[in-house]
Design a binder for these strands. Structure first.
Lengths: 170, 170
DNA sequence: AGCTTATGTCAGTGTTGTTGACATTCCAAG
DNA sequence: CTTGGAATGTCAACAACACTGACATAAGCT
């Protein structure tokens, strides 16, 4: 490690892609790419006095309509106080509807209103558009690799949540 | 677009990887993976009363010792006032040294002290370790694709900054 | 009846972004 | 040489959004 390398020591395999230098480039790629990833929605949100937190909430309510607060909490990985602040404004502004559960009346099920759907559409159009360009430029094999690395990078619980959503959608 | 698809319309090419569903999965993969990406450094920083911004500053000072505040600013994409707060605490705590420029005395050149190097090492070890596992699990072809997609996702300016750093390192 | 779960709220704090104002330094035009 | 503008960096105040801790309410469970 003193030489700043982690590379090919124990086998004939080509492990050059695991040098510290390659890893550092991966880290910086993540940093810069994430900025691009959030840039377009951020611009839209700025005009509406909303932030990234609102986007995330709206996105996952769209994905899993009727989800409970607790469920959303575990997906977003924030505290209920933090989520509540966001949900409250979204409900007040008529973008999200909160219905008392039928079976368990303690639960609140969350849905997007027509306005909420409209905002979600606007935001995800912007984000998908960038993702589409990146995917197209990189090609299908690269996209598969992209997904594979990202999935391996997730915490196990997040990976589980991601997989569950993935199955729901397709 | 009404049917929620973007897919194969205009050619014999297989463009299934560009469906809205695939794009959505890519978006969610970015979201969940970025959380894992920052989780390990965040845990270390929490004990030290530092945050992600400190990590970023230390990382890029390590990468380009002697960089000016302005230079760092353009890489990090925040206001100088925001960066300054972070730099001030790092300098007060003896992790970063700020030297007045020789040619241009308006400039400040930034360097890590021994303590600063130690923290950077600790943080980047943690982050590299996760990246290494993800890379190893995914394999070299996937890593290449991962990088290709991320690079295509960056804003042009960020992509330029990233490329410049990339060339510096290798 | 008593314990737990799900949700919401209030208060306080910390990090990190923002804008506005200002000091210092450099450089170039008059 | 002086003066005015541009570049660089610093200080102060404010907003967004995360956190913790404490508490309230309602509902389900044993």
């Amino acid at each position: 490690m003193a030489d700043g390398r982690t590379g090919p020591v124990h086998s004939g395999e080509n492990l050059l892609f695991l040098t510290d230098e390659q890893l550092r480039q991966g880290i910086e790629a993540m940093f810069f790419a994430y900025r691009g990833f959030t840039a377009d929605p951020d611009r839209i949100l700025a005009d509406l006095a909303y932030g990234r937190a609102h986007h995330r909430a709206v996105h996952f309510i769209k994905r899993a309509p009727g989800t409970t607060v607790n469920n959303l909490l575990s997906i977003l990985g924030v505290t209920k106080q933090s989520l509540n602040r966001v949900l409250r404004t979204l409900i007040e502004d008529g973008l999200v509807e909160s219905r008392v559960g039928k079976l368990d009346k303690r639960e609140r099920h969350l849905f997007l209103t027509a306005d909420g759907e409209a905002l979600e559409q606007k935001l995800s159009d912007a984000q998908r558009s960038r993702m589409r360009m990146a995917f197209r430029e990189a090609g299908p094999e690269s996209v598969a690799g992209f997904r594979k690395v990202l999935e391996a990078m997730m915490d196990p619980e997040m990976r589980y949540a991601y997989m569950r959503l993935k199955d729901t959608g397709s």
